[in-house]
Write a protein that binds this DNA or RNA. Structure first.
Lengths: 158, 158
DNA sequence: TATTGTTATACTCTATAACTATA
DNA sequence: TATAGTTATAGAGTATAACAATA
């Protein structure tokens, strides 16, 4: 039934863009209080790279050391993040997710997935299979490209 | 080959969440300068609802009249948006996307789709078909739910 | 001297409250 | 009086520049 569909990248790109815009609406109802979008990004990054220094976090954010330092000030005051002086290099600080920060992240992710499930549950099973297959391939491809494009921190121009 | 996959909503939800996080990285390289994320939302909304008043825009943003007014101040100063006094009700202003604003939106969308295509082009055609099918079903389902949940503006509690 | 991080200053974004003008 | 919009004030987020401490 879909043998004659054109799976051209441009058509899939349009549909994907629309899907993400709809998802933003769905997730917009999932409150992230008391953290802002910026603070959330920091928590996400620390969730995957616990103990990195401020410079590395700044690169992940594509931000500046100053902004990142101020963000950490507030996250630390809120009890989500801890600054620990590096034992190896006394210039550096190690940024850690606190237990409270970790719990908050897990809860948010669970709530987002529940919102998503409300939509997915209303889809035909065959479409869910197709979506799963397509997204798994997308994730694998995107992850490869991202990794290849940004090997370490070679481009200082950003 | 996928006959035994579990297309359960929770599994698809996890993969979708991962896909969106990767997409944010891909699109993070698509600069939206000189507009911020907030200004971009306004342009998007005006792109779909040109000529709405400030109150309606505020509801779409789930923001406050004050913040929205300030946002419009800057967008107007930048030449992306125009404020026109309503001929019907002298209390209201009509918000319009300028030609420049419209061109900016079209250009951004094109650049995002190009970034997306870089990933999609590296995927097997069969996976693109699956992704397309799955996303189309997702969009249709999400749009229906969003419309049903928010019929007009019945809930003032938000 | 180069690197890590913070502080000084300024602008955008956001919100609550107070205000003006219209209905 | 209720509604549409703006302005006053304050806090969060961001950036550039200047700074201290360490390597």
């Amino acid at each position: 039934m879909t043998a004659f569909r054109r799976p051209e990248p441009d058509e899939v790109a349009r549909v994907t863009t629309t899907a993400v815009e709809l998802l933003e609406v769905v997730w917009g109802r999932t409150s992230t209080a008391p953290t802002s979008a910026s603070q959330l990004r920091v928590l996400h990054i620390l969730g995957h790279h616990n103990g990195i220094n401020l410079r590395t976090l700044t690169e992940h954010l594509a931000s500046t050391p100053s902004s990142t330092s101020r963000l950490c000030d507030r996250l630390q005051a809120a009890g989500f993040v801890e600054r620990v002086p590096s034992p190896e290099n006394r210039r550096e600080v190690r940024l850690h997710l606190s237990g409270r920060g970790r719990a908050f992240l897990a809860d948010l992710r669970a709530r987002r997935e529940r919102e998503l499930q409300k939509v997915l549950a209303d889809m035909p099973a065959s479409k869910r299979i197709a979506l799963l297959e397509g997204l798994e391939s997308f994730c694998a491809t995107a992850a490869t490209q991202i990794h290849d494009d940004a090997p370490d921190s070679g481009s200082r121009s950003a």
